[in-house]
Every structure is written in C-alpha cells, then in structure tokens.
C-alpha cells in the first residue's frame, strides 16, 4: 500500500492504461505497436490485480499470484507473436498492417 494514494487513483490509472491499449490496438498501423498496445492492456490488468489484492483483500494472495501468471503468459504470447511477425517480415519485408491485408471480405 502506498500512503496518500487511494485505490481509486490507481484504478483510474489502470483504466486509462487499458483504454490506451484498446485505442492503440485499433488505431496503430504497425504490428509491433499493436503488440505493445496489447501488452499495455495486460499490464493494466496486472496492476489491477496486484492493487486490488493489496488494498481490498490483503489477507489472501490470489491477485498477486494471478498477476505472476499473467506476466508469464504474456511473455509466451509476445514470444510467439514476435516469432510470427518475424516470419511475416521475412516474406514481405514489412510489419505494417496495411501490407497484411491481402485477404478481403
């Protein structure tokens, strides 16, 4: 717990982080940027879990444990995403979203 900072402020920050992530996901034109936006969303959740655990339910560690797993999974996700992006880059030499739209409706 941080003295002088209430849970509301932190949750506001994480919410902002979350929506920045969503916004970034929808508007970014670069695959890596999109990946980073996703990471923002995940991190917002991580902070949420830790903070909620610490402020509201300090006697159990569920939130903290959850956050460790989120970090781990996020890493795996990133690893895989980067691997696929690299593979794509080797074929089209670009990581722009507009270049990945050969399939249309």
């Amino acid at each position: 717990m941080i003295a002088g900072i209430s849970i509301y402020e932190i949750l506001t920050v994480t919410s902002i982080l979350f929506f920045i992530g969503v916004y970034g996901f929808l508007t970014r034109k670069n695959l890596i940027s999109i990946l980073m936006s996703v990471e923002l969303i995940l991190n917002a959740s991580v902070i949420n879990f830790v903070v909620i655990n610490k402020y509201l339910y300090p006697d159990m560690l569920q939130g903290v444990i959850f956050s460790i797993f989120i970090i781990a999974v996020a890493a795996a996700e990133t690893a895989l995403a980067v691997a696929i992006i690299i593979n794509l880059y080797r074929q089209i030499a670009s990581v722009e979203v507009k270049d990945t739209e050969i399939m249309k409706y």
């Binding site: 460790i68 970090i71 781990a72 890493a75 795996a76 690893a79 980067v82 691997a83 690299i86």
Partner: peptide
C-alpha cells in the same frame, strides 16, 4: 538474435516461477 530473445523469454519466465 530474435530466436535467442524468444528462447530467453521462455526460460526467464521459468525462472520467475
């Protein structure tokens, strides 16, 4: 380089556990 970065990511997370 990327390959090792990805490998590292996996094993580093392992350390985290």
């Amino acid at each position: 380089y990327y390959l090792f970065a990805i490998l590292f990511l996996i094993f580093d997370i392992e350390v985290a556990f």
